[in-house]
């Protein structure tokens, strides 16, 4: 089959095709160098002992030893649990808040830029800055959260040094930071919904709530799915904000999987074990993404 196609190509087409490959090659090679090569290296490392603080041990092949170690490592279990909790709280949180923001920004304001700027700013702020800012909000002595509690005549709280409150504070920061991205995606979706639908609904006497449920939500579904996928993947990789706010503390009660991997590789220089943890995280992300993708493909709301 391919032979017949190739025979049918004129010399001009052939050279066009060669040119096409040649022009794609740099991008492909770059991608291979920064994505494929590290992934292959990561997987290879995960089957070896490789501890840079103990160079005399060499890098012997150890089979699944690193993976077996991970399955029995309490700290890995805790980090996975914390990550799952962050996903369960911050993904729906960001989508709900983001939807609200998008609906607000979609209102026919005469001056649009303040709302748009308000949407863009948290999104444009580097994650670690957001973490540092919120850390000061929740700091015990000088933080605004405790200043408000004191103003109300209440006792100040140990926001960042008690596990429950620290989790809450971190989730708040993540939702604040990420809902604006969700809002931007949803706003784009909202603007594709024809005005005539709402006008027709108005004529038929539908309430605002009915319009929202029967027109906005179904029409917005593809956009919501896109936002969910992106938000979930970034939530699985949560690192910067808890790193800046608590560095995983108190103890390691707010430590995420990405933080534990960072600690194992960058701090402890245990590249073998850290790679195994990273491969496990990669698998989890890939599985969740594929579930989402399958769901979107089946989604009738797309057309």
């Amino acid at each position: 089959m391919s032979d017949t196609i190739r025979h049918r190509l004129t010399p001009l087409e052939k050279s066009e095709r060669r040119l096409g490959f040649a022009m794609l090659a740099p991008a492909f090679l770059l991608l291979a160098a920064v994505v494929l090569y590290p992934i292959v290296e990561l997987i290879r490392n995960s089957f070896h002992f490789n501890h840079l603080a103990q160079p005399w041990m060499g890098t012997p092949f150890v089979g699944f030893e690193n993976y077996v170690k991970a399955l029995g490592d309490d700290r890995f279990h805790e980090a996975v649990l914390h990550t799952v909790l962050y996903v369960l709280v911050t993904v729906p949180g960001a989508v709900v808040i983001g939807l609200g923001l998008a609906l607000l920004a979609n209102q026919p304001f005469s001056v649009k830029w303040p709302v748009r700027l308000g949407l863009l700013l948290p999104w444009a702020l580097p994650l670690v800055f957001a973490g540092l800012i919120f850390r000061w909000f929740f700091e015990y002595n000088q933080g605004i959260a405790n200043a408000m509690l004191r103003g109300l005549g209440l006792e100040p709280l140990n926001w960042l040094t008690s596990p429950g409150l620290a989790f809450f504070a971190i989730c708040l920061a993540i939702i604040w930071k990420s809902s604006s991205f969700v809002a931007l995606v949803l706003l784009a979706g909202l603007q594709t919904i024809p005005k005539s639908f709402y006008e027709a609904a108005e004529v038929d006497g539908a309430t605002k709530w009915q319009q929202f449920r029967e027109i906005t939500l179904p029409m917005l579904r593809p956009a919501i799915f896109v936002a969910l996928i992106f938000r979930t993947i970034t939530a699985i990789q949560t690192f910067d904000i808890p790193y800046a706010m608590t560095n995983g503390g108190p103890g390691n009660s707010t430590e995420t999987l990405a933080m534990y991997i960072h600690k194992t590789t960058v701090d402890f220089l245990d590249l073998g074990y850290g790679s195994a943890l990273a491969v496990l995280m990669f698998i989890v992300s890939a599985v969740i993404t594929s579930v989402y993708l399958r769901h979107t493909r089946r989604d009738p709301g797309r057309h």
């Binding site: 603080a53 103990q54 108190p250 103890g251």
Partner: peptide
């Protein structure tokens, strides 16, 4: 040679204790 790990174990547990967790 594995001091970074030793230190992390000690400071994390001490921190958890001081926080009351």
């Amino acid at each position: 040679p594995r001091y970074t790990e030793v230190s992390e174990i000690m400071r994390t547990n001490m921190n958890a204790f001081l926080a009351g967790t």
